[in-house]
Design a binder for these strands. Structure first.
Lengths: 206, 206, 206, 206
DNA sequence: TATGAATGAGAGTTCATTCAT
DNA sequence: GATGAATGAACTCTCATTCAT
């Protein structure tokens, strides 16, 4: 709107698509630097149309985050649930959760980071994030329960809490890989997580 | 002539103090909403003086984050290192790291959140954060090594990685307490962390 | 997707009714803040339908003002003309014109204010207002003429000008009541107007 | 701010001067169309500087109105108070108050119009307008009192109320000249006001 | 060294209006 | 005829930053 018309690519008036593009912009620049103007530039859709579609800037951020984590969760769930063996499911969970070497995973990680941060400030989002966290943990808990039933795992305390620990392990190690020192790369973090998970689940060393 | 004269409390021309106040503002409003003006309002120091002292807005944010986590780290270290028994040290680490019910701890948690997020974008900060993460892990690693030497712990793999897992456990569970559902309150999270830590360290159930 | 669907009350597809509701909105918010959206909210009629019905925003404002003052004039005329005694007619005119304590009258006054202001800028409206002013004065002038004929009044100069003065008295005192200091409340203003009117009409003190 | 730099005339960073220019703009376009941008164009001072100097748009409008009527009041007072004879003072008041043929007076009139309208909505302004109205009336009241003391006038009721009537006469007739029909031009209105004033003041026909 | 004044650069938001159905 | 969707145009306001003292 400076002086050059924001033209470039044909309008992509598909809510889904718009959100995806907005996410790309946000992940690149940071969510706090997500501007209507940037999304407009990226999509060719006028600012006012974006506002018409999404409302306020905060609304947009919220929706982008929500849609993003929902997609992430769905992706991880699909990968995990197609496995049958409990430990293999746990392994898959750890592997997919931690390995953030490739760009796509890093993008996912940045998304989570923003999501958590936003959720810890925005009560509307926190409600949403509560459900996400539960779903996340449930995914692991089912594997734990199955493993216990099958006699593969021997756990202390309720499986809910064991699942919480496993999720924490993955989140926490991802964090170290991403923002920690470079002695903790994803391969090593994954190895550490695997070992600790086996311990927590009462499995012997391989 | 903005509207209200930025007066209120006497100027606090102490760099340390200024940073602390800036942190309070940032934690309350969010770091992306940290404005010179707000700090000026909170401290009584004119905007231009703050700029004179801290430079650019980004510089200010960086400094606030850096000073904040340094303080946090120092605090935790002091609490942990005054214990002698390895497992007690681990316990202290877990307890202090997770319990975020009281306001002060929540403030600390928000700070970490911002710090991680900022570090994952700002390379200057990432370098710093690398050191912080190392120090963090080292604190735990020493306890692990001592425990192993003393025969209290029986671990698999290098102690560095065990320490990494324990740190991850604490960070990840804190996360769940803070942004997760309300089924995971800090008491429960602490319990889960304790149990998992014992397992990881090869200790029997208490 | 603005935010709230513009629903609430059933559509009022009656031009008259629509104008009345628009007037209520305009009087409350001020005519310069009369928005299609507000009228839409108040009536349940979609913005585009209002535009279809009334044209441009300026058109709407003009129509609302015109319809409003016409109604006001009619009301005052009805009240005045049902009296037969000339002085009673003048009294009624003064009383109804000035007393703006109750909400309805204040609404009427705000309308006049806006009307005058608009008329002093909009030539299309000024033409209309010219007629209104004439009608207004004529109402009073007839009473004056009747009183003169009946020997009740003794005036100097043409009755047209005497009528103009009486109208001015009412308008001017209303103004003082509305925007003047609180020493000039409507009771006092009415009393002053009555006294001055008697003098102007050459009547002795009561 | 479109694309061409707002340059033209050197900045006139004198608050007084700025207000005067803003008034000129406002009177021409209407106060509800007073935009920072227009004042910026007219003065060569950047929008943000105007905002720095005057605050919010509403603040600007208020200040322009206030300064404007204060100036008007001072001007009228000066003209009136340099006369000694009570009736001459009244005459001067009427003449200056009504004759709005020349542009400058019309400008003054538009200002009053806006002022009244604004005061009837803005409580902050109403407080101010209350004082103005009092000053206005006091000016006339003093002349009335002097005339009574000198035996020139014979009034009914308190002089405060007589003054209120005289002010009303002037305001109301100005209104008719400005927005009324063209049968009521300022010469005629002035004549009517003079006659009515003489009557109200109990003076015989000349 | 420290600070008030001034300003440029956006960003969000509102709103009338156009257009296709 | 009536209406929802979409959009261009403005405008206010905030804020970091520069500059002169």
């Amino acid at each position: 709107m400076t002086d050059v018309k924001r033209k470039g690519r044909p309008p992509a008036h598909d809510r889904e698509e718009l959100l995806r593009q907005a996410r790309a912009v946000a992940v690149e620049r940071g969510f706090d630097a997500l501007r209507f103007g940037d999304v407009a530039d990226a999509t060719g859709v006028p600012v006012s149309s974006l506002q018409y579609a999404f409302g306020t800037r905060d609304d947009l951020v919220r929706e982008v985050l929500r849609a993003g984590v929902a997609e992430e969760l769905a992706r991880l769930r699909a990968a995990v649930e197609c496995e049958v063996d409990p430990w293999t499911r746990i392994e898959t969970f750890i592997r997919l959760g931690i390995s953030i070497d490739d760009d796509e995973r890093r993008e996912g990680w940045l998304l989570w980071m923003e999501y958590w941060r936003a959720a810890s400030r925005d009560s509307a989002l926190r409600e949403d994030s509560s459900g996400v966290a539960r779903g996340w943990r449930l995914l692991v808990r089912r594997a734990v329960d199955d493993g216990v039933t099958a006699g593969d795992f021997a756990i202390d305390g309720p499986s809910e809490e064991v699942a919480a620990s496993l999720v924490a392990l993955v989140d926490g190690l991802s964090l170290q890989v991403e923002v920690g020192d470079n002695r903790m790369r994803s391969a090593r973090a994954t190895r550490a997580a695997m070992r600790s998970a086996r311990k927590i689940l009462g499995m012997g060393s391989p």
